[in-house]
């Protein structure tokens, strides 16, 4: 078990290296960023000076070596725009993103699991039709569109909630719904399928035959087994949540990483883009590890050697 975790953590290191390398070469394929950093009419000398200052005039392998060497020492470089350490800038935006992703996930679990169970238990009724229709809608509506509709209805027409900004619980509501709807729908559909399948299995028949109440059968036995695919999807959906956060943060002026990275890409701020790619990759790798460990607890049959 401990060997497994250690091995996996080493793999996380490999993932970080891969992400760093990918980020480096993809960005450098797009050319050095000096052209975008200076105004169009900047003199060729000013461009050459800046290029020298950032070392963009060295051969690529030298730049790559220097980049890895610095990374290994925890130096992610300095933002080309604000001259501040890139890692600090990215990490400074992380709490807001985690808060949004966490709230979105919580929203999805609280709404999605009961909805899925309801649909499974009421199979063939109007309730199931309703849940499944809403779930289909929730999975197909673009995040961008949903965000704007929510702003129109709850901000502009009803004046119930703030449209943009950060700070209070009220600011959190609309972005949470926007970012969490897709995941809610996925979880609801998956839970329904899982519960339906488990309800047909032998152990449920046994449990019912033992005379256990339907509540215990459904919630203690069926749901727990149906939870395995749900946990998997939650792990996978964290990626969706984080990428959804890029759009959601932009619409609601949420001060998180997603919006920050988007701007850095547009402005050609290489160190910031690289730092955030690595941070995102690490985050996802760690979440996947956590999901794998959660299986252990959920399913005693799973063993990691």
């Amino acid at each position: 078990m401990i060997a497994f975790v250690v091995r996996r953590l080493l793999l996380v290191g490999v993932v970080a290296w891969g992400a760093a390398t990918l980020a480096f070469f993809l960005l450098y394929l797009s050319g050095d960023p000096v052209d975008l950093l200076l105004p169009l009419d900047a003199s060729p000398e000013a461009r050459a000076e800046l290029r020298r200052a950032y070392g963009f005039d060295d051969p690529l392998y030298v730049q790559y070596g220097r980049y890895l060497w610095k990374l290994a020492h925890g130096d992610f470089g300095v933002s080309l725009r604000s001259q501040e350490p890139a890692l600090g800038l990215v990490l400074g935006r992380m709490p807001a993103t985690l808060k949004l992703a966490g709230a979105g996930l919580l929203f999805a679990l609280i709404l999605g699991i009961p909805a899925g169970v309801l649909a499974a238990l009421k199979k063939g009724t109007f309730a199931e039709l309703l849940v499944m229709t809403l779930a289909l809608l929730g999975q197909s509506i673009p995040v961008y569109f949903l965000g704007l509709v929510l702003i129109m209805v709850f901000g502009l027409k009803l004046h119930w909630l703030p449209i943009s900004g950060y700070g209070t619980i009220r600011h959190l509501i609309l972005p949470t719904i926007t970012v969490g709807t897709f995941v809610t729908a996925s979880i609801a559909r998956l839970t329904r399928n899982g519960v339906l399948q488990e309800l047909r299995s032998d152990y449920v028949r046994t449990a019912r035959a033992k005379g256990l109440s339907e509540r215990v059968v459904v919630y203690k036995h069926a749901l727990r087994n149906a939870a395995i695919p749900v946990v998997t999807i939650v792990g996978l959906q964290l990626g969706t949540l984080l990428s959804g956060a890029v759009i959601t943060e932009t619409i609601f002026a949420w001060p998180g990483m997603g919006r920050f990275v988007l701007l850095a890409v547009e402005q050609g701020d290489f160190p910031v883009v690289q730092a955030s790619v690595i941070v995102f990759a690490l985050l996802l790798a760690l979440v996947n590890l956590a999901v794998d460990l959660a299986y252990l607890w959920l399913d005693p049959r799973v063993r990691y050697a």
């Binding site: 704007l148 702003i151 901000g155 502009l156 619409i251 002026a253 919006r259 701007l263």
Partner: peptide, 18 residues
């Protein structure tokens, strides 16, 4: 000074008096 990246969100904030 508030940064609001999305153009339609800026309009919505203006119309609600934010």
């Amino acid at each position: 000074f508030r940064p609001i990246p999305e153009a339609s969100s800026r309009v919505a904030e203006l119309l609600t008096g934010g």
